[in-house]
Simulated scan of single mutants.
Amino acid sequence: MNRERWQRLMAAFALPESNETFELLLNAYSQKHRHYHTGVHIEHCLRQLDAASGLASEPAEVELALWFHDAVYDPYSSDNEKKSADLACELLNRHGVSSERVERVRAHIMATRHEAPATIEDSRLVVDVDLSILGVDEEDYARFEADVREEYRWVPGPLFRRKRAEILESFLARPTIYSTIPFRTKYETPARRNLIAAIAALRGG
């Protein structure tokens, strides 16, 4: 997350530099209660996008969605994605970006709720980028799980383990975790390995 990249993104939308919004995002991703949903996660997502940018129909919209998709992160709340999407859309609306583009960005961010398959191709790419963490090596995956647990340290252990296992099982139950062929090729097998191991640990197996 650097200012130069942000300014290039703003230029791609024909927007002013919007440094106040950049600072808002930096501050948001630096909040002390975050352990996984930080600027490091956004940087990881942006690197994933750079490696797969040819898959995007509207690369700037995909990138903006990734910058904003966890801008609001309150572990006690269930509407973080909506509030994050509202922030992104407020920026675009303020500068007269077309409603079609605004609504696509909103859809991309809302797709990271991971409740249902995305219906827009670029949203599928955003989701694959967000879920690429599931397919990293075992050490990095273990750190990811530990960071998520730290964000929910206020949840009693048995309840957390049950709910977390249910979430991971929902990904494992999908015919494929990843929608795009490059992400499926690279991450599907290790993601399933990581999920199976994590679920077994959570379930006490």
Rank of each mutant, 00 (worst) to 15 (best):
A65C: 03
E4R: 14
E61Y: 01
N93M: 08
R143F: 02
Y29Q: 09
G204R: 08
R161M: 11
I109M: 10
Y187D: 04
P175Q: 15
D70I: 05
A165G: 05
G54C: 02
D130F: 02
A11Y: 00
F171L: 09
I109T: 12
W6F: 05
P158L: 12
L64M: 15
F160R: 14
P16Y: 03
Q31C: 05
V105P: 04
A85F: 01
P158Y: 07
D79C: 08
S123C: 01
A142L: 08
V72G: 04
D70L: 04
H35A: 11
L24G: 01
D128M: 14
R174N: 08
A56N: 13
Y29G: 03
I120W: 00
D130M: 02
L15F: 04
D147T: 03
A173H: 14
H114D: 10
H95G: 02
F22V: 04
A14M: 00
M10R: 10
E103S: 07
A51D: 12
L55T: 11
V40S: 08
C45E: 09
N80I: 09
L91Q: 13
D50A: 15
E150M: 15
F13S: 03
A200T: 07
E188C: 07
M110R: 11
H114K: 11
Y141P: 02
A165E: 03
C89I: 12
V105N: 04
F183G: 09
H114A: 08
L92E: 06
P158H: 09
S132T: 12
Y178I: 15
F183K: 11
M110E: 14
C45I: 06
S84I: 07
H35F: 14
D137Y: 04
E166C: 03
R174V: 07
A173I: 09
L92T: 10
A197G: 01
E63W: 00
Y36E: 01
V62P: 09
A111L: 02
E145Q: 14
Y141T: 05
R3Q: 13
I181L: 14
P117E: 15
Y36V: 01
Y73R: 08
S53E: 13
E103M: 05
A11W: 02
D147E: 14
L92D: 06
L131Q: 11
P158F: 12
